[in-house]
């Protein structure tokens, strides 16, 4: 690994819809190879932040630098080059419903590289397996999959081009606890083996405690605090205190400590 460098740099970001200001002077740095969890109350603009970074939402002011490219002023070709190196897992999967899982996974490969069909099928099968889906899932249509499988299929598609950065919007929402824990482990494994940087929006406290290197709290239209969880949960702010010291937060922390006690490193 090289020395920590920033793969995402957001400076002075401002987003507003009509009179409603969502972000004001928001700064955020994410380093290569880390998993950053973004938390915040409903309506605090987590998804808008994600959309601003990946270029789906044009900010009113400020700059977004992604993998060394200033996205707000980049040409279409430059943007496309950077977007190719980002994988995005949308909240509801956003799989193309008229294509099978394997075909969904092949879409980015087909669009960006000229590969023989047999080779694409092979890589698609590999990505589907990496995402933890059984072998026969590739031939299925999204409507035939359960909620957890849809998330994994969407993950397979977002991994199709071996991205440097993976954006996940509430990956464990709607999964059962076993499925959610397995998904957390999957993200960890992929990060270790593929060297991914992960930008993760979540409400799942277990996910935060299990896999995140750093946590960013989005509140009062900016990143209120960012750092390792142990620092963030001590931050002196009523919302942060209630979030991490509430019954659910304490339960998740206790569960994590039990887990560590059970498997001493």
């Amino acid at each position: 690994m090289t020395a920590p460098e920033n793969v995402i740099t957001v400076r002075g970001l401002r987003n507003q819809f009509g009179a409603q200001v969502v972000h004001e002077n928001l700064d955020l740095d994410i380093r290569r190879g880390e998993i950053v969890g973004v938390v915040g109350g409903s309506g605090s603009g987590k998804s808008v932040l994600l959309r601003s970074i990946i270029g789906l939402n044009r900010p009113a002011a400020g700059s977004v630098e992604l993998l060394g490219t200033e996205m707000t002023s980049a040409s279409t070709a430059q943007r496309s080059e950077v977007e190719r190196r980002c994988g995005v897992l949308f909240q509801n999967g956003a799989l193309f419903s008229s294509l099978t899982v394997a075909e969904n996974t092949m879409v980015p490969m087909r669009e960006h590289f000229r590969l023989p069909q047999a080779m694409m099928a092979r890589f698609a099968a590999l990505k589907i397996a990496l995402a933890g889906l059984p072998e026969n899932a590739g031939a299925k249509y999204p409507s035939e999959l359960s909620g957890g499988m849809v998330k994994r299929a969407a993950l397979a598609r977002s991994l199709a081009l071996d991205p440097d950065i993976l954006f996940l919007d509430e990956p464990t929402a709607g999964l059962d606890p076993i499925g959610a824990a397995a998904f957390d482990q999957l993200i960890l494994t992929l990060r270790e083996s593929l060297g991914l940087t992960v930008f993760l929006i979540t409400h799942d406290l277990d996910t935060l405690y299990t896999i995140c290197d750093r946590v960013a709290v989005l509140s009062q239209k900016r990143v209120l605090v960012i750092g390792p969880l142990s620092e963030v949960e001590r931050y002196d702010d009523p919302w942060v205190q209630e979030y991490f010291q509430g019954p659910r937060g304490r339960a998740a922390e206790a569960a994590q400590q039990r887990l560590h006690a059970a498997q001493p490193h």
Partner: peptide
């Protein structure tokens, strides 16, 4: 995780 590609 390698296995044969899904046969059509």
């Amino acid at each position: 995780v390698r296995h044969a590609p899904v046969s059509m």
